[in-house]
Amino acid sequence: MNIVQKPSFVLSQRHLLGIEGLSREDILNLLDLAEQFVQLNRQIDKKQASLRGRTLINLFFEASTRTQASFELAGKRLGADVMNMSVGSSSMRKGETLIDTAVTLNAMRPDIIVVRHHASGAVELLARKVDCSVVNAGDGSHEHPTQALLDALTIRRNKGRIERLIIVICGDILHSRVARSNIILLNALGARVRVVAPSTLLPPAIERFGVEVTRDMREGLRDADIVMMLRLQRERMNGSFVPSTQEYFHYFGLDQKKLAYAKPDALVMHPGPMNRGVEIDTTVADGAQSLIREQVEMGVAVRMAVLEALSRTLPNR
């Protein structure tokens, strides 16, 4: 199968650092392109040649299984040579700075670097020091653009649209790059976004993000089309942001009872990895309304679309 695209579609920038800065057209074009990769990924022969000869480096300063695997598969299916580097085995542990690492890798002439880093803004900093394209695979509490794109694709495939849907994001909004990217993207595509969390897990001035804010699940889930749960990091569970996992689950954990507040055809999402019994109950996570596995499938397609789109901006000589 050949991927046919509007020949005019070229991303408006060399890097994908965040959803912020993408136009609505960029987003829609990426989703349309990803849609075609979904079909391709379900075939036996998944190999494409659009990135043949290109080098992709996955540079992960923060542990990740699914995002790294997803980018690796995406790169390989498009024909790129993929190298994975993670912090445990890199020289960052020996005191090399982020910029030194960037400059060093840049000298090896990669075409695209995919970066995850624990500090907000670190990917942008790295992007300023290299000649190739950079994809943000999550920076601190800032952005995780490919996650937001794959979430949007999942929603669109299941609901047929994003406009006017009521999409509720629940949990640790404060520390979540997934929440930030999703809020920007879903707003850009015309959804009604609601966030539900205890006050300690909401960023200051969250209402300025163009979302409805509530601290109560019953109120927050009313008429919801999509319920998106966020992961609560272990170190934030015991007294620092919420008193205990038990109390958190009691008020904010998604179980069948709370899900019943939403529309009967509401669908459940989670960026993973899940803490079963903390933010989401197993019966919901694995239930009929769950899209969690489909999100993972869309992840590969979306990342292929991003790599493909960026490769069109790469120099060809």
Partner: peptide, 8 residues
């Protein structure tokens, strides 16, 4: 708001 947007 600005710090929240930057994720800082």
């Amino acid at each position: 708001e600005f710090a929240a947007r930057l994720g800082l």
